[in-house]
Design a protein around this nucleic acid. Structure first.
Lengths: 262, 262
DNA sequence: GAGTGGTCTAGACCACTGT
DNA sequence: CAGTGGTCTAGACCACTCC
């Protein structure tokens, strides 16, 4: 019933909460702590694992165990969609000023580092279902990762899909070098005559895959938020679909639902 | 570079993916697997921990390790708010038929087990800030947990707050025994003359606290979704605030954002 | 090279579940 | 009771980081 490792974790948690090793500072070495608490090193390590799983400390091989700093939080609101739509038909200069990510986070374009890759793929079962097209239909896959200049890891991994033939009318839309595109996807769609009518976003959370954990630099045990976004044109057709992976511990999604008056 | 425990985890993961031990079935004992893979028991256990953290298996003390079944997913859409508002002024019989949780999940009232507790509390810093009242103001705290009759753990832990003096005009609103209230919170507020104008929901994910892990019966390593809901009256005042804890691995939130036409 | 966390062993004993 | 996973030990050796 005692469970030494939990008791030790409790004590250390209390210490950290009250700022004993302050955020960013190093904890004593595991061997030292094992001696202090009079347990074996593996038991001490188990206690550390508990704190790591809680996201309270970060263990770095060869350097030590550190109290985690609150990372810069990333905000994203569904109001970004209307905001982007309102600007989608503006002249280039206005669109180029700021994008929806900047609108959400309050950062300016120069704070962000942006990376895009385009590919043509064939629709698999899932994507064919979403778009209501046949399996194998040509799709344009666009992968984005965006990070803040002063952080080393991106804060989102985005895979966005468009029906290839729908956007091919404007060849510039097939060229990744045109990214970041002023005015975003809604302006891109506008250039081929599409107006969005509604956007549906589905949110779940799960442990990261190994690749996601590496790319987003989330410590193992911290989960990711998976956001699936379906954009429909005014006629109800699905015209864009994207999957966004966000680090759960530093992302805050906001959704505002206005209600019709009585 | 080899890392035996990861290799073993990889092999077992592959086996499970291809249905070797089918969902719900038991894996061989750790001692047996340790022998099979020619590693020590602690190493074997480490491999198991990886699969557990991924949510692929569930270890039960004294019984064995089992391949996890996909649990019944719980759905929740922001369209529930308008749906509830549309019915808030309906006669009692109609309101009593179904609530917004049933609307979301497609379940009927009799599938759900509902528990409510009310308390009067003094506003702390956070709550005072949300409502724009002084610290110490009397609030009504309502805690709910809802579960499906055939599952043993609730699928949501809700703490909802109202300014006490605002709802005290209708004494029935202070009585937990009146729950589940036909028509939900929006009808409750209607009885004291309040109409909701908009609802804002903020979503994050984090590892569960020890208590949450127990109450929601999520295996350690699986994270929870935290949803903070702020309801505003038509005049913009915050009239209700709630914090909802949802198991990340079996919850899917949907948010629909309609866009104004060009 | 000194110090850190990461992997692994071989084994003891405990706690829980079923029969 | 036998069989399972959970806790803990004492120690070896490796991999990484920093000086």
């Amino acid at each position: 019933m005692a469970k030494r490792y939990e008791k030790i974790a409790d004590e250390l948690r209390e210490d950290i909460r009250s700022g004993r090793p302050a955020p960013g500072e190093r904890l004593p070495a595991e061997t030292a702590l094992a001696e202090k608490y009079r347990v074996s090193v593996p038991t001490m390590r188990q206690a550390m694992s508990v704190l790591q799983a809680e996201g309270l400390v970060e263990r770095v091989h060869g350097r030590g165990t550190f109290v985690r700093k609150e990372r810069t939080r990333n905000l994203r609101s569904n109001e970004r969609h209307q905001w982007e739509k309102d600007r989608a038909r503006n002249p280039l200069e206005e669109r180029a000023e700021t994008g929806s990510t900047e609108h959400d986070t309050g950062l300016t374009l120069s704070d962000l580092v942006f990376h895009a890759e385009y590919a043509e793929i064939a629709a698999d079962d899932e994507l064919a279902g979403v778009f209501g097209v046949e399996v194998g239909t040509r799709l344009l896959e666009r992968r984005y990762r965006t990070r803040q200049r002063d952080e080393d890891a991106p804060f989102s991994l985005v895979s966005s899909y468009l029906v290839h033939d729908l956007v091919a009318a404007n060849p510039e839309l097939l060229d990744a070098d045109k990214e970041p595109w002023p005015g975003g996807t809604q302006n891109q769609l506008y250039t081929v005559g599409i107006e969005l009518g509604s956007i549906e976003e589905q949110v779940t959370a799960r442990p990261p895959t190994v690749e996601e954990a590496e790319e987003l630099a989330v410590s193992p045990g911290v989960s990711v938020i998976v956001l699936r976004k379906t954009s429909r044109a005014t006629d109800g057709r699905v015209v864009e679909y994207s999957r966004v992976i966000l680090p759960g511990d530093r992302t805050e999604l906001t959704f505002v639902t206005p209600l019709r008056k009585w």
